[in-house]
């Protein structure tokens, strides 16, 4: 049997597999997750029955809420971006990482390298969002979304801070976040979020 057509077909198959794979991977990486509208003022959200009851109000101190899925590998990039941005924050900033935890899981479920890294950030605390209650109240459905509320409780930034899904590095959104942390803005910066879905379909419907 002539092996040349077989060889040619093999080349074409491998090339096609690689090309399609790269296209799918690119699409996966740059496809933003679905996100809801975050409350423009933190006071608009009922927090008394949540783990954030002690976080607000905090007059004069901006608060950065980092919603994340502890098991989401993509969020590691968000944490690394924060690690690199934090030294450049000029005012005092309180970072609160909201760790999604399914309702039927123990709090230890949130233990992951993402949680560990977030807890190591300066002025940070990790709160457990059992059942995704806070996520739903803040309209966050994608892991890695951050919300910045200024000292007056106004929403200043909403979105992801990575350029792609699970891809660390400088990006316009991260720079925008830095800028809004360091200087006050009247408007709110909105950016797409790249990451795993925070809630399952059943939790989202509840």
């Amino acid at each position: 049997m002539n092996s040349r057509p077989v060889l040619l077909m093999t080349f074409v198959a491998l090339f096609a597999m690689a090309a399609i794979g790269f296209v799918q991977l690119t699409d996966y990486s740059s496809r933003p997750g679905k996100s809801g509208q975050a409350p423009l003022r933190v006071t608009d959200v009922r927090l008394s029955d949540t783990s954030l009851a002690d976080a607000f109000p905090a007059p004069g101190v901006p608060t950065l809420l980092v919603f994340y899925h502890p098991k989401c590998p993509c969020t590691v990039a968000t944490v690394r971006v924060l690690e690199r941005l934090q030294p450049r924050f000029r005012p005092k900033l309180r970072i609160t990482a909201v760790a999604y935890c399914p309702g039927d899981q123990q709090d230890t479920w949130i233990e992951s390298r993402t949680t560990t890294a977030l807890s190591k950030l300066a002025s940070s605390q990790v709160v457990v969002d059992r059942g995704g209650k806070l996520c739903k109240r803040f309209g966050v459905f994608v892991s890695g979304q951050v919300l910045l509320y200024d000292g007056e409780g106004r929403l200043s930034f909403s979105g992801g801070i990575t350029p792609y899904r699970g891809h660390e590095g400088d990006s316009p959104s991260s720079l925008d976040l830095l800028k809004r942390i360091n200087t006050s803005h009247d408007d709110c910066g909105s950016w797409p979020v790249f990451g795993c879905s925070m809630l399952s379909d059943s939790e989202r419907q509840r």
Binding site: Q24, L25, Y28, H69, K71, C72, P73, C74, V76, Y100, P102, D104, Q105, G132, S143, G166, C196, S197, M198, L199, S200, D201, S202, E203
Partner: peptide
């Protein structure tokens, strides 16, 4: 780095 991808409490092999 990314063995699984998660949706809430559910997961599947990562892309």
């Amino acid at each position: 780095y990314s063995p699984l991808t998660w949706i809430g409490n559910e997961f599947e092999p990562h892309v």
